[in-house]
Amino acid sequence: MTVQKVREILEKNGRLSTPVTDLADDSDLYNAGLTSLATVGLMLALEDEFNIEIPDSMLGRKTFSSIQSIVDVVEQLTQKA
């Protein structure tokens, strides 16, 4: 469920050079063309969609490095809410 939504958001906001459908959950998103500017759009869209606020301590390169790591963070934050 979360994975599917994250994939949709990534497709819209990630500006990747590889189509999201070609990526595995653990594929490296930076290798797929994710830039830091695109990360901003991605973060804002994730926060909007899931109604969360990602704290500074989780805002780092690793969080956005794969679909799985994004899902992990989103699930951690939605469970808290």
Binding site: D56, S57, M58, L59, G60, R61, K62
Partner: peptide, 8 residues
Amino acid sequence: AEALDTFS
């Protein structure tokens, strides 16, 4: 390492 990897 987590803190070193943060954007902040």
